[in-house]
């Protein structure tokens, strides 16, 4: 699969990402490539470096070493052009609490240069897509966690980007909301390159075409969910993915310690 991948469709191309914070290597030589039509689940225990890696993918953090190309554009060379290619849901889905949903999406649209009737259409489409129509006039601070997450997703997909980077898109949602968001991601994954971080293994099975496991800042697995599951010995019959995850992350934790 990797060998036959079309270079043109390679929308995320991160090579050798390394980040040190005060001498500590939070992320160590991580390379990720994602093509159109792929949904990559970024897995790892808490503190493994998932958020730091995603922040480097979006350019919010400068890597200590390594490079990122989004839609073929180097994020360091032409950050503005690279940023047009992606939508980003940061950790915790931050938004301005005192704005209404409509005001907020209007601001994001204006910042992305979407104006006039095009803007109205984009906001209406996205509101329908993530089911925000009933709360458009409400201030964001009055929304439940599930709605806040949807607002975060809405601002990320407002300009219909080719690349979506989402840090824990389903964190804190109830099972129904999780199901909805996963369905949306699966649907969008057909035409976009998506990276999402999670520590829920069933999510990988449910929505991802590929899993990348990172622990102590290093990639320890990169393959399809079924390849991931196949790593468990035949003797393990239940929670096979959990078993593999434990094996992978425990081994690396020992090495780093």
């Amino acid at each position: 699969m990797i060998q036959t991948r079309n270079q043109m469709a390679l929308l995320i191309d991160a090579i050798g990402l390394t980040k040190t914070f005060g001498g500590i290597r939070a992320v160590d030589d991580v390379s990720i490539t994602v093509s159109s039509g792929e949904v990559v689940g970024f897995l790892g225990p808490n503190g493994a470096g998932k958020t730091t890696t995603m922040r480097m993918l979006t350019g919010f953090l400068h890597p200590t070493a390594g490079s990122v190309r989004l839609g073929g554009v180097d994020i360091d060379e032409d950050p503005i052009a690279a940023r047009r290619h992606f939508g980003y849901l940061p950790e915790g889905a931050p938004a301005y609490p005192d704005m209404t949903v409509r005001e907020y999406l209007n601001f994001i649209a204006a910042a992305r240069g979407i104006a006039g009737t095009e803007r109205r259409a984009a906001i209406d489409t996205v509101a329908a897509r993530v089911h925000l129509r009933g709360v458009m006039a409400q201030t964001i601070e009055t929304l439940s966690k599930g709605f806040k997450r949807r607002v975060g997703i809405a601002q990320a997909i407002l300009h219909d980007p080719k690349v979506l980077i989402m840090d824990e898109p389903t964190d804190g949602l109830d099972p129904n909301q999780k199901h909805e968001v996963r369905q949306l991601i699966r649907e969008m994954g057909k035409t976009k390159a998506i990276v999402l971080s999670t520590h829920i293994l069933e999510e990988v099975e449910a929505v991802c075409t590929r899993a990348v496991v990172i622990t102590a800042g290093r990639v320890v697995f990169d393959g399809t969910p079924s390849e991931f599951e196949a790593r468990a010995p035949a003797s393990v019959t239940r929670h096979r993915m959990d078993h593999v995850f434990r094996e992978l992350t425990a081994a690396a934790a020992e090495v780093s310690a």
Partner: peptide, 14 residues
């Protein structure tokens, strides 16, 4: 504090 700096500085604005 809000974390919105992550969105604001990754929008395609100089």
């Amino acid at each position: 504090r809000l974390g919105t700096v992550e969105i604001l500085t990754t929008l395609p604005l100089p």
